[in-house]
Simulated scan of single mutants.
Amino acid sequence: MSGCNFCSVLVTGANRGIGLELVKQILGQPKPPQKLFATCRDPQGSGAQELKKLASKHPNLVVLQLESTDEASIKAAAKEAETYLAGKGLTLLINNAGIMPPSTLESVTQDDMLSVYHTNVVGPMMITKAFLPMLIEAAKKTCGKGQGCGKPTIVNFSTIGSSIGNAPHMGTFPVIAYRCSKRALNMLTQCQALEYKDKGILCVAIHPGWVKTELGTDKAALEVEESVAGILRVLSHLSEEQNGRLVDWEGKIVPW
């Protein structure tokens, strides 16, 4: 995000994988945000220890409890963040939290599909809805000026597996519920872009690459540090051209 002035940032699913690496690299920027909110399901649990250590060293990092399938949890996190922001607004919302259970056309069940949609589509939708007033507030007094970089931005993490124009073979990416949910998330991103453009908010879906994380497994070709560095470069040059589009971690437009 070098060269881009996001005054406040919120990252969901921040206790591991891409989310945790985003927190680390955002904190390491030459001009880190005044407030960086990192959310996870259980901030007191063993899975959030590294996040808690970072918070103890960085006073601008705030760890919030947020369960993306629990509307009460979402609203509570938004209320707490709003207190910290004190009317300044939120300039970057990164919907990173998601699940990717294995499922094929033969094995997938109704419950599988609904569960994945609940987390990967309904979750980001409700989170964005809860934090939208803060994004609108930031748009009124944006810290960074200009048509692209610095505008309040919503980022939804998607995948090339959601692409119809360039869809990976099912044999290489056999996660039918995940792929369908991310396809729906792409449309959500497009709808948000259309709806929020006049409010001065950009919306983009990002494919982070096939990354070596718990979800991506160690078979993936891309290290998480490289993926996140690329994502932050994309965000630092974000413009109206990418609004409502699916782009990859290198900034290339992915066919819908």
Rank of each mutant, 00 (worst) to 15 (best):
S103W: 05
T83I: 06
I74C: 08
Q34M: 05
G87M: 06
E106N: 15
L54E: 07
E80S: 14
I94G: 07
N60V: 04
S107R: 12
M126F: 13
A55H: 02
V62W: 05
L92I: 15
S56N: 13
A14L: 02
A81C: 09
T128G: 10
K31R: 12
H58Y: 15
Q34W: 04
T83Y: 08
H58T: 04
L66V: 10
V121R: 14
D112C: 01
Q44V: 00
L36V: 01
V122Y: 14
A14D: 04
P102F: 11
F37L: 04
G89V: 15
G89K: 12
K79N: 09
P124C: 14
V62N: 05
T119G: 00
V116T: 13
I127C: 07
S68N: 15
E106L: 05
A76L: 05
E71W: 11
L22I: 07
E67V: 13
T69E: 11
I127R: 12
L54M: 09
R16H: 03
L20W: 01
G17F: 10
A72H: 14
L22M: 11
Q29D: 12
H58K: 09
F37Q: 02
I99W: 03
L114S: 13
K52A: 07
H118I: 03
N15A: 02
P33G: 08
V11R: 05
L10Q: 03
E80D: 08
K57Y: 04
I127S: 08
P59Q: 14
L93V: 07
G89D: 07
Q65W: 02
T91R: 11
A77S: 15
Q44E: 05
A81K: 13
V11S: 01
I18L: 15
S73D: 08
I94F: 14
A55I: 01
D112I: 05
E50R: 11
L92W: 14
A86V: 07
A86L: 12
K79V: 09
F37W: 06
K52F: 00
L61K: 02
T91A: 15
R16M: 02
M113Q: 07
V63L: 01
A77N: 08
V63D: 00
E80P: 05
M100W: 04
G13E: 13
L90I: 03
Q44M: 02
Q65N: 15
